[in-house]
Amino acid sequence: MALENTPMSGIAPNGDSKLSTWRGRISFIDLMQSVGLLAVILLGSAIMSVLSPVFATVRNIENVLQAATIIAVVAIGQTFVILVAGIDLSVASVLVLSSVLSVGLVEFQGFSPVFGVTVALGAGLGLGLINGLAVTKLRIPALIATLATMTIGRGLAYIYSGGTNIAPVPSFFVELQAARIFGIPAVIVLTLALALIAQIVLSRTAFGRSVYATGGNPLAARLAGINTERVVIIAFMISGLMAAIAGLLITARFEAGAATAAQGMELAVIAAVVIGGVSLFGGEGNMGSMLLGVLLLGLVQNAVNLLNVPPNWDSVVSGLVIAAAAALDVYRRNYLEAGMRRKVIASKSS
């Protein structure tokens, strides 16, 4: 987490060298967390290369990365929501609704592929807006509001598609899945580009600073003149848009309007975000570490498959990883950062 990414950014006086020191220490913790994640990924990859000759092949690695792109794109949007201390359970439903609309509007109603994609993205933004308004204007807890839209979104996808996948897809999707940029699958490049744009927004714009401030201390943010309700609404809209984009990617991957896909994906997305160091309490995290969390979760799931572990154990392993990441988040907030604050206060008073 860069210095400007702290919850108090844009609120605390810039001349406070002690506060700057504290921010620097927090950034160091974030850096160590990212390094730790990378070390675990490299160590796990080395072990899996020994246990399974298939793991280190180009084809397997490419499959892991392409599968991870869908989770990663959804996780980009989820990161914005969690940074404002919210949660979005509707992302998987938005994904499948986007997928069936992008194909069904072409196959069933005869519209152009461009129109289908536009409506699919608009549906994601619209459901994100509904989530944001429900949380800010109706004061419905985010967990309940997005649980409702999760049910509604998947229900609409089933109604529209008849509960089955829709095929064939427009040639645009086939070309997207097959496209490569400098030998790298285009979907991977697109995912990295979206993550880079999101990180620039968070670290280099007034809106990004408002996101961290709103999640870190909403009262202080309001006193500083930030329209926290608008920030929360936009965060949910970004989440909806990213989920809709992921719906287009999964359509390209499966070559069908995937009405039955992404069952339980919302939990995998939240797991990846938390593993990547984005605090469930809001106000802390960055896209780089989040992507490492997505990659680690993808490698764990790939390892479970390659080692022929019974499918039901996949959920158990993922659950244990989520619990460990959440425990680390609590430890970091309650002990490491609290200890640093006490040291800064003590040094200021001495």
Rank of each mutant, 00 (worst) to 15 (best):
A206W: 08
L192A: 10
A235T: 02
V294N: 03
G124K: 01
L267E: 05
R154W: 02
I152T: 07
P185K: 04
A326V: 15
G240Q: 05
S171K: 15
D329L: 06
A12S: 08
A193D: 10
W313S: 03
F115L: 14
V231M: 11
G86T: 08
S93G: 15
G208S: 04
P310E: 10
G126P: 05
A268G: 15
A178Y: 10
A271S: 15
N131M: 10
G288Q: 07
L31V: 13
V273H: 04
G77E: 06
M32D: 00
V96I: 14
V84L: 08
E107M: 11
M265F: 15
G110N: 02
S315I: 12
G124S: 01
S203Y: 07
S27W: 11
V114I: 13
L299I: 14
S239V: 11
A261N: 07
A303F: 04
A167H: 02
I130L: 14
A246S: 13
Q177H: 13
Q109K: 06
A346Q: 13
N286H: 13
G77M: 07
N14L: 14
S98M: 01
L176R: 12
T136R: 11
F80A: 06
I152M: 07
G288C: 03
M287W: 04
A178C: 06
I144K: 00
I140A: 09
N308Q: 05
I200Y: 04
V321C: 05
A243Q: 05
V294G: 03
G285C: 10
I245L: 13
R209Q: 13
L292W: 06
F108G: 01
S93A: 14
V316M: 09
T69I: 10
A243K: 03
N334Q: 14
V189T: 09
Q301K: 13
T21I: 08
F182I: 12
L328A: 14
V317L: 13
I82E: 08
Q109R: 07
Y212A: 01
S289V: 00
E266M: 12
V278M: 07
T6Q: 15
L43F: 15
V187E: 02
S102T: 03
V187M: 09
M8N: 10
V269Q: 05
A246F: 10
G122I: 07
S49Y: 09
A261R: 08
S49C: 05
I322Q: 06
V100S: 00
L291G: 01
E255A: 15
S347Q: 09
R341Y: 14
T149Y: 07
L127R: 01
R341M: 14
A195C: 00
V174I: 15
S99V: 02
F115W: 12
M1E: 03
N308Y: 01
L19R: 12
R332G: 12
P113E: 02
G264Y: 08
A72R: 09
G257K: 11
V84P: 10
I41N: 07
F111G: 00
I270M: 11
M290K: 03
